[in-house]
């Protein structure tokens, strides 16, 4: 029986050997960097030794104990959730607003130009963004120049942790809102024209059309994109946080996130086992977030759930 099944597989692979050969590089890559990395998760329960690899000494839940007892972990978890929460809420609101505004713009050339400007920041790396930020915020920067012009005192932005909530959210919006709004606009333009015609006959103005047709019909798309972000609320954008904050100790209380913490644990402190324990905690909680938020969305917008 089993042999028979195997023979069938071999026969199929021989019959289409060229196609399976085409798939080989992608399969090898996925095995190496996908499936074969899974066993390494077990090192969260070991004291990792670079010479011994996966077979390092077993320590049980010691790594988790260490990490739940340290106060730093709660700070980075809180920062990750607070910052991602702000990004999701503010980012979504701005993107919806932009999409609705785009939908009302009649002049196509103006719309195209505006969209090109707004999409540009999406293509540049966070490292470049940190340079732009530097030109704006350094003691010699444009913002302080303007503050001085109005008679104020220059602000040392790089040592003002609380200002960074606003700075990070603003940067997130500038980098992503243009991009997300284009997805929303595509979803708006696919709404049936007949609905608007019927509404006009019933005497609805533009505002009422937007409120009662566009917005409700946009909600499933909003819900899907928001779900994807909420599912990843425990995962910070490492590139963004590390490029902008670097190792600036003054800003770490508000801007140190799980991903940068794991990175430091692994690359600077050199404790892969502790880093893995934090990573495992992150994945486990993240998994529940995806399921929970999906169940919630299913109740409200059946079309807007992921699975």
């Amino acid at each position: 029986m089993c042999l028979n099944g195997l023979q069938k597989v071999v026969k199929e692979i021989c019959a289409n050997r060229m196609c399976y050969l085409f798939l080989l590089p992608a399969v090898i890559y996925t095995l190496l960097f996908g499936y074969f990395t899974l066993p390494y998760m077990v090192i969260a329960f070991e004291r990792y030794d670079f010479t011994k690899g996966i077979g390092s000494p077993w320590v049980g839940f010691k790594n988790f104990e260490f990490f739940f007892k340290s106060s730093e972990v709660w700070v980075v978890t809180r920062n990750t959730i607070v910052l991602n929460g702000l990004f999701i809420v503010c980012g979504t609101v701005v993107a919806i607003a932009l999409a609705l505004l785009f939908n009302e713009v009649k002049k196509k050339l103006f719309l195209k130009t505006a969209q090109s400007f707004m999409l540009f920041p999406h293509f540049i790396s966070w490292v470049i963004v940190s340079y732009i930020l530097y030109a704006l915020l350094s003691t010699n920067g444009l913002l302080n120049h303007w503050i001085a012009a109005f008679g104020g005192n220059p602000v040392r932005w790089y040592s003002e942790p609380n200002a960074w909530y606003v700075i990070l959210v603003a940067l997130y919006i500038v980098k992503n809102a243009g991009y997300t709004s284009i997805i929303y606009l595509a979803s708006i333009t696919s709404i049936d024209e007949g609905l608007y015609e019927a509404a006009v006959i019933d005497g609805a103005n533009r505002w009422q059309q937007m409120k009662h047709i566009t917005l409700p019909l946009l909600m499933p798309t909003v819900s899907i994109l928001a779900l994807m972000s909420i599912g990843r609320i425990f995962f910070a954008d490492f590139g963004m946080m590390y490029a902008l904050i670097k190792d600036n100790g003054l800003l770490l209380p508000v801007a140190d996130v799980i991903d940068t913490y794991v990175f430091r644990m692994m690359r600077v402190t050199g404790e892969p086992s502790l880093a893995m324990a934090v990573g495992l905690f992150q994945s486990a909680v993240g998994f529940f977030m995806v399921y929970g938020s999906n169940a919630l969305a299913k109740k409200k917008y059946p079309d807007g759930a992921l699975f």
Binding site: L32, F36, T37, P39, Y40, M41, V262, M266, P272, S283
Partner: peptide, 9 residues
């Protein structure tokens, strides 16, 4: 599996 296994691989 996240950053650490990827790095070790």
């Amino acid at each position: 599996s996240g950053l650490v296994p990827w790095y070790l691989m």
